[in-house]
Each structure stands twice: as structure tokens, then as C-alpha cells.
């Protein structure tokens, strides 16, 4: 795989981030996935070279982690949580509706290269069940109808906002964020929502507070 000067610089930055080059392997694989929409044998070979390991070792790492895809994802990755909380509270129905809308099943991409569907495990958002993700950005509290609507809007090229995060970009853009997290989007959207504020609001309404101390922490 021929890599550009810019890619080489980014790979070198990732290696320099850690005390040992091998630690950069995971972010490098994310970077590869931001260049192509999958991790290819060529991409792995590049990572292996910069990490100072064999291609076989790098492959064993790439194949261990489920976020590294060994086939093209396409433009948008759609995840629907089917773990116990989300699945039973309605995620199963959401998955069925999205699967029917896209005409593909688990770990499959649509023929037009627009969508990739995955049944995902717990997304650490059980308070917001059922949860869907688009390019790993949160789409909280979805219903079958609202989930399909998100897919429809994305398919029409409309702007779609994450419920707790920025406007949806695409899968490869998110993968670049995972390699280089300072993406300038930290102030976008309304990441702190009603459910995250539920207890604080009740405490304020009812005049509850932690005991004060002499010092401020």
C-alpha cells in the first residue's frame, strides 16, 4: 500500500505518542480504517512496519478487536444495541425494523455502499435504552420508527445530529477521531442531556446538596 506523505506523518505522530512504538498499533489501525473503510492486509502491513512487529502479529491484533472491519463498511456504520437492557426494552424491534429497511443483516453492508448494520453489545448508555449508534455517535432512546427515520434522512443526504454529540459525519471520519481525538467537535451538540441531569435537577428542586466544606474542591 502506497501511503501519502500526510499519512506517514500521522503514523509517525502516533508512534511518538507512546513510550514504545508497538502501543501505537491500535490507533494506527483506526487511522488505516479512516483512509479506507476497512482494515486491509496492506493497511495492516503498514501498521506492522511502523509498530516494529511482524505482519502476522499485527493481523492477530486486528482480528481480535471487533471495531476493525475486514470488509468494506461503506459510508455509515449503524449499530443497534441488542444486549439485555436495550434489546428487551425495544432494541430487538428496532434492529428488526432497521434490518428490514436496509435489507441486510448483522455485519452486512448494503449493495450501494451506504450502510453497514451491526448488532452491537452494551454501549454504556442503558439509561438511554434502546440505543442506536451512527458511526458510533449516540442515537439515544430510539423507537423502530425514529430509527428508520434516521436511516432515511441519512440516505437522502440530510443533516442528522447525534442526540449527545455532533452532526453525523461518516464512518471514516469517526475512525480518524479515534486515532486523533482532538477533532475540534467537543463543543458541538448537547452532550449533557435530561437523563444525565435527572438527579441534579431533583436535588435542586428539593433543595438537596452535599454538605459544604471550608475549602472549595
Amino acid at each position: 500500500m502506497a501511503i501519502s506523505e500526510s499519512t506517514r506523518e500521522q503514523l509517525e505522530q502516533l508512534v511518538a505518542r507512546y513510550p514504545q512504538p508497538r502501543s501505537a498499533l491500535m490507533p494506527m489501525l483506526h487511522l488505516m480504517q479512516s483512509l479506507e473503510d476497512e482494515v486491509t492486509a496492506d493497511g495492516i502491513a503498514v501498521c506492522a512496519e511502523f509498530a516494529g512487529v511482524s505482519a502476522a502479529e499485527a493481523t492477530s491484533v486486528a482480528s481480535f478487536y471487533t471495531m476493525y472491519k475486514r470488509k468494506p463498511v461503506g459510508k455509515h456504520h449503524i449499530g443497534v444495541c441488542i444486549n439485555t437492557m436495550c434489546g428487551l426494552l425495544g432494541g430487538d424491534a428496532v434492529y428488526d425494523a432497521v434490518s428490514e429497511r436496509l435489507g441486510v443483516g448483522h455485519n452486512e453492508a448494503t449493495a450501494d455502499g451506504e450502510f453497514f448494520l451491526e448488532r452491537i453489545e452494551c454501549q454504556a448508555a442503558c439509561t438511554h435504552a434502546p440505543v442506536m449508534t451512527v458511526d458510533w455517535e449516540f442515537m439515544d432512546d430510539v423507537t423502530p420508527t425514529s430509527a428508520v427515520d434516521v436511516v432515511d434522512r441519512l440516505a437522502r443526504g440530510e443533516q442528522v445530529e447525534s442526540t449527545r454529540g455532533p452532526v453525523i459525519r461518516d464512518f471514516q471520519a469517526t475512525e480518524h477521531t479515534l486515532a486523533f481525538p482532538e477533532d475540534g467537535l467537543a463543543a458541538e451538540g448537547t452532550p449533557v442531556d435530561d437523563k444525565m441531569l435527572a438527579g441534579l435537577r431533583i436535588a435542586k428542586e428539593r433543595g438537596m446538596a452535599a454538605p459544604a466544606s471550608g475549602q472549595e474542591g
Binding site: A124, P166, L178
Partner: peptide, 20 residues
């Protein structure tokens, strides 16, 4: 003199807020 924050990859929103 060196600290690492290992954040799961599936939550870019948490990753970008911490990195910021």
C-alpha cells in the same frame, strides 16, 4: 510521569471531550 486514559472505542463523544 506518564498517564494513559484507555477509553472504549465505541464512544467517540467521550473520547473527544476528554482529549479536549
Amino acid at each position: 510521569n506518564h498517564a494513559f486514559i484507555y477509553i472504549r472505542g465505541e464512544v467517540p463523544e467521550a473520547i473527544r471531550r476528554v482529549a479536549n
